[in-house]
């Protein structure tokens, strides 16, 4: 009977396997296709906006601490960049490809460059012929970062002149990581509570969907009533029709509701009891109204607003009377 290795063993074996790559040289020695030369320095300085005269002005360079023209130190890497159209060496014999595959096989498929450290032993001069060797400098254990969990891989490039003297070096660090899961999409805004619709007041909500605030009217005696009810309180008739409110009124009373807070309601939750010009009272929220405008007797104007696809409600805004 065999037992599956525990995760810890697996992970320890994987971590150990990554360390085998440290110190291995990547690929062949890169040879700069061109010796260090003034035209390429000129392109660099133009693009960077670098006006340091020691790069392009021979007499100023001669008078400087450098004693002659030099190449911008940060241009070091540019001399050995891969030619246009030539891809990375991804052959299986390349230890860097093997390392990359190993970490990718554990899910660390994304990549981001994190650090670059260049050290200059001396400034390069026109005529210098560079070569460069790359070594895998270090592979970190598993790290958790803001981007996700992964391994830092650091390569070291050493640059040599024609005499084989080192002129500079560069440590370049990338993070191979498993992308952190994307945050769940924001929950949809909760909807306002649904009215429990009955035959008696269905017309009122339907009217609002069409942008109208309807007032129920007794078809016998003409008395207006709100909230909706099946029977006229004056003449007991159950026959009714509606009129559309003009939308103007005055604050009869108001309250600002602080507690409990309901997610679907916007705060401050200002509730007004409005005496419509037609003579009935309506309860509603305010819009575009500051707390200091909430005054009993203040003139208000109706605005019917759509709260969601299935619900429109009346709102009132304090206006100049």
């Amino acid at each position: 009977m065999t037992t599956a290795p525990t995760d810890t063993t697996d992970s320890a074996a994987f971590e150990a396997s990554l360390q085998q790559f440290v110190g291995l040289e990547i690929g062949v020695v890169a040879v700069a296709p061109d010796e260090v030369n003034v035209p390429m320095v000129r392109h660099w300085c133009e693009a960077m906006g670098d006006t340091n005269p020691v790069y392009l002005d021979a007499s100023a360079a001669a008078a400087s601490v450098h004693g002659g023209l030099v190449s911008p130190p940060t241009m070091l890497q540019a001399w050995v960049m891969r030619p246009f159209g030539q891809g990375r060496d991804e052959s299986e014999s390349n230890p860097y490809s093997q390392l990359t595959k190993a970490v990718e096989s554990h899910g660390f498929t994304s990549v981001v460059a994190t650090n670059c450290e260049q050290t200059y032993d001396r400034y390069l001069r026109p005529g210098d012929q560079l070569t460069m060797r790359t070594v895998i400098d270090s592979v970190s254990g598993e790290k958790t970062t803001g981007l996700g969990t992964g391994h830092f891989i650091t390569t070291r490039q050493d640059y040599f002149d024609g005499a084989g003297e080192r002129v500079g070096s560069m440590l370049f660090r990338i993070l191979k990581f498993r992308p952190a899961p994307k945050p769940a999409p924001a929950a949809p805004k909760p909807l306002r509570p649904r009215p429990s619709l009955t035959f008696d007041h269905l017309f009122w909500f339907e009217g609002l969907k069409q942008g109208k605030l309807l007032i129920q009217r007794c078809a016998e005696c003409g008395v207006l009533r709100h909230p909706a009810a099946p029977m006229c309180r004056e003449c007991r008739s159950i026959v009714w029709d509606t009129i559309e409110a003009g939308g103007r009124g005055r604050i009869h009373s108001f309250v600002v509701v602080h507690y409990p807070q309901i997610p679907s309601i916007e705060y401050p939750n200002q509730v007004v009891l409005v005496d419509l010009d037609e003579g009935v009272r309506v309860v509603a929220n305010t819009v575009d109204t500051n707390a200091d405008q909430l005054v009993i007797g203040a003139a208000v104007q109706l605005e019917v607003r759509m709260c969601d696809d299935d619900l429109s409600l009346p709102f009132f805004k304090v206006v100049q009377s």
Binding site: M48, V65, P73, Q77, Q118, Y120
Partner: peptide
Amino acid sequence: NGLIGRYITDWAGPDSIIKNVSIRL
């Protein structure tokens, strides 16, 4: 890297010698 090099020598002048540039991206 190039812009940082420029920024430093814009300030320090032509007689400065940069020894190291270490950046975090």
